[in-house]
Design a protein around this nucleic acid. Sequence first.
DNA 1: CGTTATGCATAGATAATCTAAGTATATAAT
DNA 2: ATTATATACTTAGATTATCTATGCATAACG
Lengths: 115, 115
Amino acid sequence: MISFSKSLVAASSKPLILGVLQEGKSYGYSIIQRMKTISNGKIEWADGMLYPVLHRLEKEGLIKSEWILSETGRHRKYYSITEAGKAALHDEKANWMSMHEVMLNLWSIDTSTSQ
Amino acid sequence: MISFSKSLVAASSKPLILGVLQEGKSYGYSIIQRMKTISNGKIEWADGMLYPVLHRLEKEGLIKSEWILSETGRHRKYYSITEAGKAALHDEKANWMSMHEVMLNLWSIDTSTSQ
DNA sequence: CGTTATGCATAGATAATCTAAGTATATAAT
DNA sequence: ATTATATACTTAGATTATCTATGCATAACG
């Protein structure tokens, strides 16, 4: 578990969540686990941190929610990405990659052999 | 000029500034221009945005400042990176790269041929 | 002598997470 | 039965951070 800075968490939460939801609809608890998986345990979000972000993204119209009753009888609030969300994810990716290139440029890491 | 999100700016400002100062001592106005250069014009910081960050980094002991009178007669506050700052930059790089790998992993971008 | 570029500082508005606490149910263990 | 643990969502308040706007000041240029 890496202790990412608050600001890095803040900058990454939106593209990460949208990215997970582009894989298919999911719900809070599951998103947290998925994040832990794809980060090889480096990202461990607290629930109280995720839900406000989900609410904000829904408010912005990037995701939408629906309550679903599972076979086990448990209620889950599933989120899915909207068209606006897909567009936002596209922008987020582009911005992240732009910033990443600046970082590599500054840090003088040779990327000429990439791809 | 890309309009980076606030959070992405927040997450990048520290490693970017430390990265520039690792190239050698510099001052506010010059740092802004350097940032514009290495980002191919994508990053255009307002001065009122940079100075508070410099003050914070100095308060944290990551950089230190000294007033220098140039030959032109202009006073400039030069900042240089401290040992603690170099260590912080090292961590920032590692964290950024970790997060970047998660992004690539999530976005399913093939990086197997990199490096 | 006026305009532009250079150069630093800060107050107040704004925006965002993070901690902590609360609520609730299913399942497994004892 | 009862306890503990994992699952599952919400929100208030504290904290932290930039961003806009403004002010001050000097050098260079025309």
